[in-house]
Simulated assay, not measured.
Amino acid sequence: MAGMAAFSTQRNGACRPRGWRALAEGPLPALALAALVLVAPLASAGEAAPAWAVWAAAAVAGGSFVTALTSARRPWAVRRRIPQALVLLLAVVTVAATAAFPAGDWFTLYSLLAVAVAAVMPLRAAPALIAVTALAGGAMQAAVSGSWSDALWGTGVTSLLAGMTTYGFRRMAEVIADLARTRQQLAAAAVSAERLRFARDLHDLLGHTLSMVVVKAEAVRRLAPRDTAAAVRHASDIEAIGRQALTEVREAVTGYRDASLAFELDTARAALATAGIECVVEESGPALSPETDMLLSWVVREGVTNVVRHSGARRCRITVRRDVDPVLAEISDDGAGGDPAAASGSGLRGLRERLAAAGGRLRATSLPGGFVLAAEVPHAGVEAGP
C-alpha cells in the first residue's frame, strides 16, 4: 500500500525515483494488489451464470483500479480529473458486482476501492470517502448475507483499515516531498544570501581601495618630475594599499572580515588628504558594540569613497554621534552636490540592506552646495562606556 500512495505524490513535482524504487512505485504494485483481491471473485466464475459477466466485471474493476493509480502520476490526466473518474467507475462496478453476484466473494472489491480512494482523491476529502466506502460495503454485505458480524469484520473494518493505511502512507509521502522542497528552497536562499554578502563586501572593499590607488597614482604622476622622494612615498603607499586589499578580499571570501570604525576614520583622513580634500572628524559618546561599530565603519568607507570619486569637494566633515538615539554617522562635503548614479548605486544599496537588517536606515541627500550621507543605527547596539 505504500507503493499505492506514491502514485499521487509524483504529480507534485518531486523527482522521479530510479532503479528499484521506480519499479516499486510503478504500476506493478497496483497490478499485484488487484490480482490478489480478484482471486476470490474469479474463483467463483464457474459457478456464476454467465461466466463472461464475472470476467468482464473483474477486468473492468482491475483495469480501472490500476489505471486510476497510474494516471494520478500524469499532470495532464490529473487536470482532466481522469483518476477521479476511474475511481467512480470502480465504485459503480463494485456496487453492481456485489449486487449481481451475491454468491461470489465480491465484497473484497470494497477494500480495493478504499485503497483507490485513499491514493487518488483529494487529501481533505479522502478520509470521509474512505469511511463512506467502508460503510457502504458493510451495509451491502449485511443486506446480502443478513449477518452484521460478517459485514462489520469481513468488509467494513477491512476496507477501513486498507483505506486509512494507504492514506497514512500517502500523507507521509506528501510530507517527505514538502520537506525535500523546503530543503532545496533553504539551500537556494542560503546561496543567494552568501552571493549578496560577497557582492556587497567586494564592492565596498574594492571600490574604496581602488579609489585610493587612483588618487595615489595621480599624485605619483604629478610629483614624479619635481619631487622624486614624495613620488616614491606615494608609490609605497600604493603597494601597501594593494597588499591590504588582498588581505581584505581573502577575509571577505571566507566571511571573517570585521571592519573597524577607528581604522576607517584613519584611512579616511589619509585618503582625503591625498586627494587634496580637508577632512574634519567629530566624534562623541561611549564605545559601540562590535556590530554597530562595523556597520558605521562601512558607512564611513562608502561615504568617503564617494567624496573622493564624485564630489570634487574641498572640505569633508565626518560626524559620529554615539551619545544619541539612534547612533548617527554623517559624511558631508561642499562639492558639486553628488553624482545621481552614486546616490542610487550598488554601494549605497548594499549599505541600506546592511542597516535595514540591524533596524537602521540610510539617507543620501544631494544639496546645491554639497552631498550628505547619514546613517542611523538603533541605540540598542551601544555598549556602556567605562
Rank of each mutant, 00 (worst) to 15 (best):
T254H: 02
A271G: 15
A231G: 05
A57P: 06
A240T: 15
T155V: 15
L69I: 01
L129I: 05
L246V: 11
E330N: 04
R74P: 09
R171Q: 14
Q141L: 10
A51P: 15
S211E: 14
G360T: 05
R309D: 12
A384C: 03
V327E: 02
L196E: 12
L373N: 11
H234M: 08
M1I: 14
G350R: 02
V175R: 12
A177M: 04
L246A: 10
E302S: 14
A100C: 13
L33R: 01
R309S: 08
V120Y: 12
G156C: 14
V215G: 08
A189S: 12
S236R: 03
M4E: 09
P27H: 10
D227Q: 01
V324E: 04
A99R: 13
Q185N: 06
D323S: 00
E330I: 02
S346R: 06
P29Y: 07
W76V: 08
S366R: 14
C279Q: 07
R269T: 15
V37W: 01
P386I: 02
F7T: 13
L31W: 04
A57R: 08
Y110T: 12
A173V: 10
M172E: 14
F65C: 01
G3H: 02
G26D: 12
W52R: 06
G46T: 12
V327W: 00
A34R: 01
I277R: 01
A14G: 11
P122C: 07
A190V: 10
L373M: 14
V117F: 11
I176S: 13
R200D: 12
V253E: 03
G338T: 03
A43G: 15
L112H: 15
A341V: 10
H208W: 00
A341G: 11
V175G: 07
E283F: 02
G335I: 00
D227F: 01
A231K: 02
L328P: 01
L328F: 00
R183V: 11
D201V: 03
S260L: 10
A77T: 05
D204K: 04
L351R: 05
A85Y: 10
G168F: 10
Q244F: 03
G26Q: 10
Q185V: 05
L31Q: 00
L28H: 07
G381S: 10
T133D: 05
V157W: 08
G345L: 05
L129N: 04
G62Q: 04
L348R: 08
A189C: 07
V144M: 07
A139S: 06
A97K: 04
A245Q: 05
R301G: 08
P83G: 07
A103R: 13
F198P: 00
A235P: 03
A118T: 15
T274S: 15
R301N: 13
A262Q: 15
S297M: 11
Q84F: 06
W298Y: 10
P102D: 12
V93M: 09
G242P: 05
R315H: 12
A343N: 11
V320E: 00
A51T: 15
T133F: 03
A96H: 03
A24N: 09
